Simulated assay, not measured.
Amino acid sequence: MLSLQEISDRLEIQDLMVRYSYAVDSRQWDQLDEIFTADAYIDYTAMGGPAGDLAATKKFLSDVMPNFLAFQHLVSNSSISVDGDTATARTMCHNPMVVPGGEGKDQLMLCGLWYLDTFRRDDGRWWIQRRVEEKSYMFVAAPS
């Protein structure tokens, strides 16, 4: 049986992952400062992006995401393990993205991945310390 503390920890961690999705989907890159530790390592290489620190990640996102007309990060099915002030999780992400197509016909790109995260609690608050993407699929639908 889970303790009330572990239930609270899991809910706070799930909320942190949702806040990441909202920050990216609303293009509010500075909100990532409230989600990742200052020394965070973020690896997007499995889906074609870079790996690096938070500043490099924010720059990458601000440069690349405007190329997409629309996108959503839908996170679910988290397997979270809490150990005191640290935790790990494997979380599913489905990320549909609309890309401009030729002849004015937009295309839908479907990305499926897992976030492999390490979390740290500092001053009573959970942060993502390490995020690595693991690719499941990437598919571009041809325009009709």
Rank of each mutant, 00 (worst) to 15 (best):
residue 11 L to A: 14
residue 12 E to F: 08
residue 15 D to A: 12
residue 15 D to T: 10
residue 15 D to F: 00
residue 15 D to N: 09
residue 15 D to G: 08
residue 17 M to D: 11
residue 21 S to M: 10
residue 23 A to G: 02
residue 23 A to M: 01
residue 27 R to M: 13
residue 28 Q to S: 12
residue 28 Q to M: 07
residue 29 W to F: 15
residue 29 W to G: 04
residue 30 D to R: 09
residue 30 D to V: 03
residue 31 Q to H: 10
residue 31 Q to L: 11
residue 32 L to Q: 01
residue 33 D to F: 09
residue 33 D to A: 05
residue 33 D to C: 04
residue 34 E to C: 07
residue 34 E to S: 11
residue 36 F to E: 04
residue 37 T to M: 04
residue 39 D to T: 08
residue 41 Y to L: 15
residue 45 T to N: 01
residue 45 T to C: 03
residue 45 T to R: 12
residue 46 A to T: 03
residue 46 A to F: 02
residue 47 M to K: 01
residue 47 M to E: 07
residue 48 G to H: 06
residue 49 G to K: 01
residue 50 P to I: 13
residue 50 P to T: 08
residue 53 D to Y: 04
residue 54 L to M: 03
residue 55 A to T: 07
residue 55 A to K: 11
residue 56 A to K: 14
residue 57 T to H: 10
residue 57 T to Y: 09
residue 58 K to L: 08
residue 60 F to N: 09
residue 60 F to M: 14
residue 61 L to N: 07
residue 61 L to C: 09
residue 62 S to I: 09
residue 62 S to L: 08
residue 64 V to M: 14
residue 64 V to D: 13
residue 66 P to I: 11
residue 66 P to M: 05
residue 67 N to D: 13
residue 67 N to K: 13
residue 67 N to Q: 14
residue 68 F to D: 02
residue 68 F to M: 12
residue 69 L to T: 15
residue 69 L to R: 13
residue 70 A to R: 11
residue 71 F to V: 06
residue 71 F to Y: 12
residue 71 F to S: 15
residue 72 Q to D: 06
residue 72 Q to H: 12
residue 72 Q to W: 11
residue 73 H to D: 06
residue 74 L to W: 15
residue 77 N to R: 09
residue 78 S to T: 08
residue 79 S to H: 15
residue 79 S to E: 15
residue 80 I to C: 01
residue 80 I to L: 08
residue 83 D to A: 14
residue 84 G to E: 07
residue 84 G to K: 05
residue 86 T to S: 09
residue 86 T to L: 03
residue 87 A to Q: 05
residue 88 T to K: 13
residue 92 M to Q: 10
residue 92 M to T: 14
residue 93 C to W: 00
residue 93 C to P: 00
residue 95 N to G: 11
residue 98 V to P: 00
residue 98 V to T: 14
residue 100 P to I: 08
residue 103 E to A: 15
residue 104 G to Y: 11
residue 105 K to P: 02
residue 106 D to V: 04
residue 109 M to G: 01
residue 111 C to E: 13
residue 111 C to A: 15
residue 113 L to Y: 12
residue 114 W to E: 13
residue 114 W to D: 12
residue 115 Y to G: 01
residue 115 Y to F: 03
residue 119 F to D: 07
residue 119 F to N: 03
residue 120 R to F: 01
residue 120 R to H: 07
residue 121 R to S: 00
residue 123 D to Y: 03
residue 123 D to S: 13
residue 125 R to A: 07
residue 126 W to F: 01
residue 126 W to H: 01
residue 127 W to V: 02
residue 128 I to D: 00
residue 128 I to K: 00
residue 129 Q to E: 13
residue 130 R to V: 05
residue 131 R to C: 02
residue 132 V to L: 05
residue 133 E to S: 10
residue 134 E to W: 10
residue 135 K to M: 11
residue 137 Y to V: 04
residue 138 M to K: 11
residue 138 M to F: 08
residue 139 F to L: 15
residue 139 F to G: 05
residue 139 F to S: 13
residue 140 V to S: 05
residue 140 V to T: 15
residue 140 V to L: 12
